[in-house]
Write a protein that binds this DNA or RNA. Structure first.
Lengths: 196, 196
DNA sequence: GTCTATATACCGATAGAC
DNA sequence: GTCTATCGGTATATAGAC
């Protein structure tokens, strides 16, 4: 079977949109969102900047395409949280769902936590809801009588789950199942250090 | 006693360098490092951009001046860590020292964790050592036989301590002493969730 | 120490040919 | 779908007057 494209176009032309997406994630994580120019992304893919605009209408839309799957999961979680029973089982369920979202969208999540301010500001106008998702989850985890200590513990528990985003660097040999089990246990221990 | 300066210069002229420093921290935290222009900082202080260059030779040097006190503390901690006994008391000492550095340099720390990628990249050439300080501390906390589980727990414990950087937002009423006690207990619980 | 004016470079984005 | 060429804007940084 003969190729339908000339040799020079095989690499760039096969699935350019996905190649742009992947190169953008890699460069945004390595260099930062604002510090990465569309020209660098185009170079990494092997095309020019105007060709990139054929696939994504703007740099912001490219960013939104990267983070949307993660934000959708977090939004869904924050909306269903009110129906969960506020007991030990419920807390474990919420933390595990959050943790699995981090593992599933590891690249996008790492990009977000390492460039939190610029990225949140960039998308805040379009998605005001997602800015509050973390606060909703934290308040729920803190319980109906949120003392400062409980609020700090809730933040600590959620913060632990973001370690999943860099687990490949911290513990390259750990499978995702081990990462999930380990971090979930650690988060629960941080949330209720005295085992109450 | 008459003022030595005209009224128009009182605000900007009294301690311009510190005013630039403080305005820069505030804007870098709110908008991001690259997203904040020197013109915005100058406007916030009430001077022009060339006047800013009289006090700081470049935007990068301004950034370095902000984060240096924190980096010095972290470097010192990572260098003295080898002399600490690797027992429960030693781990508590290390975690508490790290946590107190976060509380002491809260503004610079919040700026760093929320703009980690751009800032680390910006100073990595000049300070290759500090990039490894976190890894040194993590490896020490994981102990002499660092299994993946222990490495993940060590990362989790350190991650908790960064909650101190946003404690004023999470729990505005909590004094620093309460923040320190609460997060230190949570970190130790995450590091050894089974109480070993 | 602060200013006006400017040099130089790169950014995101677009026009239009092929 | 990809290209060459370019627009309009803004960035860091500097020169030189006061």
């Amino acid at each position: 079977m003969a190729n339908r494209r000339s040799a020079a176009h095989v690499t760039a032309g096969r699935d350019t949109k996905k190649a742009i997406h992947d190169a953008a994630v890699r460069l945004f994580v390595a260099k930062g969102f604002e510090e990465t120019s569309l020209r660098e992304i185009a170079d990494a893919v092997g095309i020019t900047k105007p060709s990139l605009y054929y696939h994504y209408p703007s740099k912001l839309e490219l960013l939104v395409a990267i983070i949307n799957p993660l934000l959708d999961d977090l939004k869904a979680l924050s909306e269903q949280v009110a129906e969960i029973a506020p007991d030990a089982d419920g807390r474990r369920t919420i933390l595990r769902t959050y943790l699995r979202a981090m593992i599933r969208h590891r690249d996008a999540g790492e990009m977000m936590v390492r460039n939190a301010v610029p990225i949140v500001n960039a998308v805040a106008d379009q998605f005001p809801v997602v800015v509050d998702a973390n606060k909703t989850l934290r308040d729920w985890l803190a319980g109906p009588d949120p003392t400062p200590v409980r609020l700090l513990r809730a933040s600590a528990a959620m913060e632990i789950l973001t370690v999943a985003l860099v687990s490949k660097e911290v513990a390259p040999d750990a499978e995702d199942d081990l990462v999930e089990t380990t971090l979930l246990d650690a988060a629960i221990a941080a949330l209720r250090p005295d085992g109450e």
